[in-house]
């Protein structure tokens, strides 16, 4: 799913990533951890094509990022869902509109789109807020909208950059359950976090510890739960 070999990235004279190598198989859950400035966000940005890969090699969901053409970036991002700490949702639009956006850009027929959006909103426990304006939602609800948007198109990989950073412990645990739920359906996840509680949430997840742009440690949690079949998983959430 993801292969990274000797990946480096610099902002001028500052090297944010130095010789990072790792790989991620389909259905794996990988945590990136480390202090602020360790290179977690830079690595994620490289993986979804927001920064160009100029040193080293990287491939994501079958796309070689080294020679990724501009016109291929949208295709890459349709296979990758991205979740941010600051949600990045349109606060003046409804929950439905925000989630539907990810399918509208694919030109999905309206009837099909509405069915999928309603299903994912229900799976997120937001069915009573479908037509609420997002700015009236709580932080946890807004983050669930962001996750719903990233998941609605059934991506092969989720990249999450400190998705629980703005949330209290209860909400954090709830959101991690949601991530785990999708992970058990076979979606690969790379999540950047510096929260110990979050790291302990996912049994069997691998943990890469970054420091000053380098991987300094790799660990893994308990044995993972057996992966469910993808078609069954889609049915379970109504997708």
């Amino acid at each position: 799913m993801v292969t990274v070999e000797r990946l480096s990235y610099n902002f001028g004279t500052y090297w944010a990533l130095k010789d990072v190598s790792f790989s991620l198989k389909k259905g794996e859950f990988l945590f990136l951890t480390g202090h602020s400035g360790a290179g977690k966000t830079t690595l994620l940005r490289l993986l979804y094509g927001a920064l160009p890969v100029t040193r080293g090699r990287a491939s994501v969901a079958g796309y070689q990022l080294n020679n990724l053409r501009k016109r291929d970036i949208p295709q890459l991002r349709r296979k990758v869902g991205v979740v941010f700490q600051d949600f990045k949702i349109l606060s003046d639009r409804t929950v439905f509109d925000n989630v539907a956006m990810a399918l509208e850009v694919r030109g999905m027929p309206r009837q099909h789109l509405e069915r999928r959006v309603r299903a994912i909103i229900r799976a997120m426990g937001l069915e009573t807020k479908s037509y609420s304006i997002c700015e009236r939602l709580s932080g946890g609800e807004q983050q669930r909208v962001a996750i719903a948007r990233s998941m609605v198109a059934n991506p092969e990989l989720i990249l999450a950059d400190e998705p629980t950073g703005n949330l209290d412990v209860d909400l954090t645990m709830h959101l991690m359950e949601i991530f785990q739920q999708f992970h058990t359906y076979g979606t690969s996840v790379i999540m950047a976090t510096h929260s110990k509680e979050v790291l302990e949430c996912v049994p069997g997840a691998r943990i890469l510890h970054l420091q000053d742009g380098r991987i300094v440690d790799e660990a893994s949690g308990a044995e993972p739960e057996p992966e469910k079949e993808e078609p069954a998983s889609l049915g379970e959430v109504g997708l």
């Binding site: 949208p74 990045k88 349109l90 850009v105």
Partner: peptide
């Protein structure tokens, strides 16, 4: 800009 960034993140083509 926010909308443009989000659209770009979810795979919208430049033309869209």
């Amino acid at each position: 800009l926010d909308e443009v960034e989000i659209l770009s993140l979810v795979g919208a083509r430049p033309g869209y």
